[in-house]
Structure formats: structure tokens, C-alpha cells
Write a protein that binds this DNA or RNA. Structure first.
Lengths: 198, 198
DNA sequence: TCGAGAATTCAACAGTCGTGGAACTCTACA
DNA sequence: TGTAGAGTTCCACGACTGTTGAATTCTCGA
């Protein structure tokens, strides 16, 4: 609602929501550093100072925009239910079902991109993805070496997300869901429940 | 050699080499955007304008600093030699031997970090890592679905490198070489030579 | 009806960034 | 010895960054 004039606008303007939406998009596309407050403000058709008024410093806007829609405790029962030799496939389908949905994808993309450059966000990905989400899920399976398994799993999960959803590398990006599940399920199966050693 | 005075220095100063070294380090630690010309110049104890004098715009400095020390044609014969059921392990050992060496690691880290944020570098990782390095290696094996296999392989390679070397996530980062080989070799084996489908 | 406070913008500050030009000094070769 | 050119610095430009303070206009409860 940029009328060029100062002062409050009549009625409900929805600026706050537009800011969050624009921030999610920018963070997803350009990462933390690449997404400037001014660009987000322009997308939301709003003055940069308004963003600061609502959210304070940039870091706070980031955590407000990129809030994780997944709870690790949802995964644990899903993995434990059903035959153990299909654990990897269940995990693959669950993981992909989240990323196929465009809304969480923007948040997750933002996290992933930002984690690579920003040191604080790197700690965040460790904390959120590995400790809070994958950690409990693996722990609930009661297998040996849970910490190592979490990182193995994380390495494949992040690599897959990066190539298929963030960088959009073909032919992986356009491969059908069943193809992707078929390709990655055995890998997840090994990292989750099968013996690791050489 | 910052004497505070202008003009050429006597003797060989090695500025060019120091600039490249500093650039590699900065790009590795902070990615393309995060590594400023000025910071690189400070590390190399040199005026920022000298960097521009040698390498032109920043993009040219990046490709000069981050030059890949691997040739895809070196990998192909290595993968083909030896028993086929150990192909994945040979690949794992080769791949890890490169990253364990600190010099290429800096270059590769820089590429990886930059590829996530900078759009041009994303195309570069696709071109260099996937097309020029993993592509020929997989093609030489004469298996079906080579393009898909390259991206599967790439997803695990990048995820592993990211967690173990770039983000340094424990316990993967400190795990012994044999542990890592043991954990990932079967995955690589599947992506390289074994049937994929569900 | 009045006043507190929410919403919004403008203008500006102090940084940082990449890059270009001009000037200076040394080297290498004719 | 003279001179073209490589190496090097300083300075400045214009653009962009996150953030702050003040001013303005609207809303809502007392």
C-alpha cells in the first residue's frame, strides 16, 4: 500500500503478512545474506523501516519467516510402524511428501541456502534438522550408533534436497516420485536400520 | 609488502600468489558473496586495486582461485579397474582421498559454498562436478540410466562433503576414514553399478 | 469525544562493497 | 642510458547495506 504519503492506512492492510511472505521467498531464493531488507520491503510494497518496526533486526525477521513446519516426534512413530524392512521407504516417502509441498519448501530452501553461508544458520540447521528432527526419529528405532546414523542420513537428505529442490539439477529434479523413492529408499534403509561397518 | 608508499617493490614480491592463496581461503570459508575483495586484499597484505589489476572483476578472480584439481578422465579407469563389486569402495576412497588433502579442500569448499548462493556458481557446480567429473566416470562404466545415476551420486557426494568438511558436523567429521568408507561405499556401489528401480 | 498507541513513511547515518583513474616506482630490454 | 611496461598504491565514485529518529495518519478503547 505505498501511497507515497506517511501515516497509518485506513482498514486492515495485511502488511505484516505480505512482509513475511516476501521474506520467505527472498530467503529461499537468495539465502540470508543475499536477501536484503530493502528488496523484501519492495516485494511487500512497504517501507524498509516498517519491517524493522515489526520484527526488529534482520536476524529476528529470518527466524520469524523461516519457521519449521515439522516436528521430529511426528516421524518417530511413522518409522516404527509397519515392517522393519520398509523403514527406508517410509522415510523416503515422508521426507519427499514434505518437500513436494511448495509452502514448506520455501522455508526449507531458505534454511538450507542460508546454512551454507551464514555461520549462525549453520548451527541452526545442525540444531533443527539433525538434533530436533532426525535425532529423535533415529533414536526411537533403537539401533546402534545413532549419532553417526543421523549424520549419514542427514548427508543424503541434504544432498537430495539440494540437487532436486534448491539447485534443480536434471534429471533428478523432474524424476517421478516413485523413481526417487526407489532410488533412495535402500540408502535410507541402510543408514536407518541395517548394519553399517565395512 | 604494504610499505604505505606507492610504486613498484624491488625484487619478486609474490603478491599474485598471496592473492590467490587468500582468495581460495576466503572463498572457501565465506562463499562468493561473503568473500570481499577488500578482505582478500587485507589477507594478502595488498591494495584491493592490485587484485583488480591482476584479475579484473571479482568473477574472474573466483574462477582463477577456485580451479579444479581433478580431471574426470582420471576417475574413469580407476573405477573400471578391479572387481566390479568393489566399485563403490574404490570411488569412496578416491573421493575421500581428495577431500582429506587440505589444498584441494579449500577450492572445493569454496565452490560448494558459492554454488548455494550465487546463481552463476550453481551452473558451475553442475557443469564442473556433475558434467565434467562424475559424468565421464559413470559413462565409462556402461550402465543404464547414466544421467540419473550421476545426480544420485552427486547428491550423496555433495551431502557428505557438506556435512563432513564444510559444516563439520560431528560425529561424521571426526569419523575415521575406514568408518566413512564402510558407511558410504554400499551407497556409491548402488548408484554406480547396481540396478536402481523399486 | 479525546487521547494513547499502532501503522506507516521519509530522510539520514555510518558502513561496506566493487571498480576506475591517476600517480608513482621499479625492472627489463634496446 | 633511455624508455616501455609491469607492479603497486591512494583516492574517489556511486551503489547498496541495516538501522534509527522523527513526523504523520489512522484506529480503538475509555
Amino acid at each position: 500500500m505505498r501511497t507515497g504519503k506517511t501515516g497509518r492506512r485506513p482498514g486492515r492492510s495485511g502488511s505484516r503478512e505480505r512482509i513475511l511472505e516476501a521474506a520467505r521467498q527472498r530467503f529461499a531464493d537468495h539465502g540470508y545474506d543475499g536477501a536484503s531488507i530493502r528488496a523484501i520491503a519492495a516485494d511487500a510494497d512497504v517501507d524498509p523501516a516498517l519491517i524493522h518496526h515489526y520484527f526488529g533486526p534482520k536476524q529476528r525477521l529470518f527466524v520469524a519467516a523461516v519457521e519449521l513446519p515439522i516436528d521430529g516426534r511426528d516421524i518417530a512413530p511413522l518409522l516404527s510402524s509397519g515392517p522393519r524392512e520398509e523403514t527406508g521407504e517410509r522415510f523416503a516417502r515422508f521426507f519427499l511428501s514434505i518437500w513436494e509441498d511448495p509452502r514448506p519448501r520455501a522455508s526449507l530452501s531458505g534454511m538450507l541456502r542460508s546454512a551454507i553461508t551464514d555461520a549462525g544458520a549453520a548451527a541452526m540447521i545442525r540444531e533443527l534438522l539433525l538434533v530436533r528432527i532426525l535425532g529423535p526419529a533415529v533414536a526411537a528405532l533403537g539401533v546402534g550408533d545413532p549419532e553417526l546414523r543421523v549424520t549419514l542420513l542427514g548427508s543424503q537428505v541434504i544432498g537430495l534436497a539440494l540437487l532436486r529442490y534448491v539447485l534443480v539439477v536434471e534429471p533428478l529434479a523432474s524424476a517421478s516420485l516413485d523413481t526417487v523413492v526407489g532410488a533412495f529408499a535402500p540408502t535410507f534403509q541402510r543408514y536407518l536400520v541395517e548394519p553399517l561397518g565395512p
